[in-house]
């Protein structure tokens, strides 16, 4: 899309000449009447400074404080950063913890692992749905109706969606009842719920819609004429997907994946409700240390989680240059 041809726009009415530079300049420098930019961004800026920047800065400051049994005291201490990274016996070849990362890094690692698995599954499940909505469903009203149908789970609270798995997957749940009834098993299977399987499935169900939305919009934006042209030129459906649809829907995929990535990295409630608390996420560690009023260490954990998120987003944006693609 970066190459601008001589003809600015081609459509049913034929080629149109590109507007001259003067006209573009005039359009850019022209200020619409109404609120000045500064007023438009003020509410959001105040909100973000008060409730994002200030807390974030406090978290950074807190992470260097000292925490004694008598409470917090301001300091510049790297103690809790050391605690986060270093485990006793890490460099000792004889210790059973030789080269074993600290429990906090391992917890962050398992959080990343579950996040990546869920993202992959969300892509596998979500992309075809978005593709179907955008490409197969012709009428706009049906597209909208079906897309809203995807949103139905969001009509109820997050926790109810998570809890609702119990009657489905639990020992006395629907699936177990069916398995028992059909004589496939003699006693209820327990791997469905309070398990890695159930946890991953619940995460996919809860977050896949966040991916479907952006993927659907970027797929729907693709000009059908291009696809038709490709077909006319003899391209196979696979070639069309590889050369046109795939690349053009990448920004949507990237945005969807960023949404899912950020949400699941911060997850802790689903692990409790659906996995029965049998794993720790980076979020639960923060909560645990908050719970014993060790705010500096909770802050260190929060910052490391944020760092991991930023790295993840940068990686995704490296793979897909959203600004270029949009």
């Amino acid at each position: 899309m970066s190459k601008v041809s001589e003809l600015y726009h081609t459509g049913l009415i034929g080629g149109q000449p590109a507007p001259d530079d003067l006209a573009i300049q005039a359009k850019i420098s022209h200020t619409e009447e109404g609120f000045a930019t500064v007023w438009l961004i003020t509410p959001a800026a105040i909100w973000l400074i008060l409730f994002l920047v200030v807390p974030l800065v406090s978290i950074v400051i807190f992470s260097f404080w000292e925490n004694s049994p008598q409470g917090l005291s301001p300091a510049f201490s790297l103690e809790f950063y050391g605690e986060y990274f270093y485990t006793k016996g890490f460099f000792d070849p004889d210790a059973d913890r030789f080269l074993l990362p600290s429990v906090f890094i391992r917890t962050l690692g398992s959080t990343v692992y579950f996040t990546l698995v869920t993202m992959l599954l969300c892509l596998i499940v979500g992309y075809p749905i978005a593709y179907f909505l955008a490409m197969q469903v012709q009428a706009f009203k049906w597209q909208l109706a079906l897309f809203l149908l995807c949103m139905v789970p969001f009509w109820t609270s997050y926790l109810i969606r998570a809890v609702a798995w119990l009657p489905m997957l639990g020992r006395r749940g629907l699936i177990n009842q069916a398995l028992l009834g059909l004589g496939i098993v003699d006693e209820p299977v327990s791997f469905l719920f309070y398990s890695e399987f159930g946890y991953t499935m619940a995460l996919v169900q809860i977050y896949v819609v966040l991916g479907i939305g952006p993927m659907f919009f970027s797929l729907a934006k693709i000009d059908k004429d291009i696809l038709e042209a490709a077909t006319d030129m003899g391209a196979t459906p696979f070639q069309i997907f590889r050369e046109i649809i795939g690349p053009m829907s990448l920004p949507g995929v990237a945005i969807g994946m960023i949404f899912i990535f950020v949400m699941i990295m911060g997850e802790f409630a689903t692990a409790v409700v659906v996995y029965g608390g049998k794993t720790s996420t980076a979020g639960t560690v923060i909560l645990n240390y908050y719970g014993i009023a060790n705010y500096p260490f909770a802050a260190v954990n929060a910052l490391m989680l944020m760092l991991a998120m930023v790295i993840g987003i940068v990686v995704i944006l490296r793979v897909v240059d959203i600004r270029k693609e949009l």
């Binding site: 809890v163 119990l166 639990g170 020992r171 006395r172 327990s190 719920f193 309070y194 409790v272 409700v273 029965g276 608390g277 049998k278």
Partner: peptide, 25 residues
């Protein structure tokens, strides 16, 4: 014990402990 699969779940709130028992888990 955890690796042997001894624990079904770990609960944190009053309500969770009630649910675990009521649902037969």
């Amino acid at each position: 014990k955890k690796k042997e699969g001894h624990f079904r779940a770990f609960w944190e709130t009053f309500g969770q402990s009630v649910n675990l028992m009521v649902s037969g888990e």
